[in-house]
Simulated assay, not measured.
Amino acid sequence: MAARIDHLVTSGTFALDGGEWDVDNNVWIVGDDTEAVVIDAAHDAAAIRAALGGRALRAVICTHAHNDHVDAAPALADATGAPVLLHPDDLPLWRQTHPDRAPDAELADGQEIEVAGVRLTVLHTPGHAPGAVCLYAPQLNTVFTGDTLFQGGPGATGRSFSHFPTIVGSIREKLLTLPADTVVRTGHGDSTTIGAEAPHLDEWIARGH
């Protein structure tokens, strides 16, 4: 049974540094008809469970710990028994949203997560957040970038725990080295490809944000 990517958009609030913004988040489900993982359990655990449709949830994978990407993670994990996986460098951000509930296991650069016969390789890509990761699935010709790379440039680096030179380095070293036709499935907004974004790296650096 072939693995597939299901896509759900959930809506809620992003809060950091005393500000709040209404946001729509992409939730990605990778699996087949029997098992799956969720990438970024945003806002609505019930809607994500409905999209799973009874499949066994193997993991809730967090690309980073901004509240809009992890606010539904504990509820989804508690309802399904799946572990929450987060890079440890993002624990300070995680604790802002979930001070009384730790993630269940750590993500590490180079780690491989398998589901439905597909391998997801963890790429540590700090910059938008210290523990930000992307997940590369060569068999699906896809990289899930969270808020590290969007259509049109890097994720935001104007708030706490973020750093523009670091995110540019992460994109250059970990993402733009992937095949040009790799589909970039982002944390917000439309998908793109590595080939569409790679030529613009110098423009992003010149803009400095």
Score class of each variant (00 low, 15 high):
M1S: 12
A3H: 13
A3Q: 10
R4L: 04
D6S: 10
V9P: 00
S11R: 12
S11K: 11
G12Y: 05
T13Q: 09
F14L: 13
F14I: 03
L16Q: 13
L16E: 11
D17V: 02
D17S: 13
G18H: 04
G19V: 12
D22G: 07
V23D: 00
I29N: 06
D33K: 06
T34H: 15
T34G: 08
E35G: 00
E35L: 00
V37W: 14
I39T: 05
D40F: 08
A41E: 02
A41K: 05
A41F: 04
A41W: 00
A41L: 05
D44Q: 09
A45Y: 01
A45F: 05
A46K: 05
A46M: 04
R49N: 02
G54L: 09
R55V: 11
A56K: 15
L57T: 00
A59F: 07
A59Q: 10
V60K: 06
H66I: 11
V70E: 03
V70I: 15
A72N: 05
A72P: 05
A73S: 14
A73H: 06
P74V: 11
A75R: 10
L76H: 12
A77C: 14
D78N: 11
A79K: 13
A79L: 10
P83G: 09
P83F: 11
V84K: 10
L85V: 10
H87D: 14
H87P: 04
P88N: 08
D90A: 03
L91R: 15
P92A: 12
P92E: 14
W94M: 11
R95Y: 09
H98W: 14
P99W: 09
A105R: 14
L107K: 09
D109N: 15
G110Y: 06
G110I: 06
Q111V: 03
Q111M: 15
Q111F: 01
E112N: 14
I113R: 07
I113M: 11
I113G: 09
V115Y: 13
A116H: 10
G117P: 12
G117Y: 11
L120M: 13
V122R: 08
T125R: 08
H128L: 01
A129Y: 01
P130G: 12
G131N: 06
C134K: 03
A137S: 12
P138C: 11
Q139C: 00
N141K: 13
T145Q: 06
D147C: 07
Q151K: 15
G152E: 02
G153P: 06
G153A: 03
P154I: 05
A156F: 05
T157W: 03
S160K: 14
F161D: 09
F161R: 13
F164G: 10
P165Q: 02
T166S: 12
I167W: 02
G169R: 14
I171M: 07
K174V: 02
L175S: 01
P179Y: 05
A180D: 15
T182N: 07
T182G: 00
V184C: 10
V184Q: 11
G187V: 02
G189S: 07
G189T: 02
S191V: 01
I194R: 07
I194T: 07
I194S: 10
I194L: 03
G195V: 08
A196M: 09
E197C: 04
P199E: 04
P199W: 03
H200D: 07
D202V: 02
E203L: 14
W204H: 02
I205C: 04
R207V: 13
G208P: 06
H209K: 02
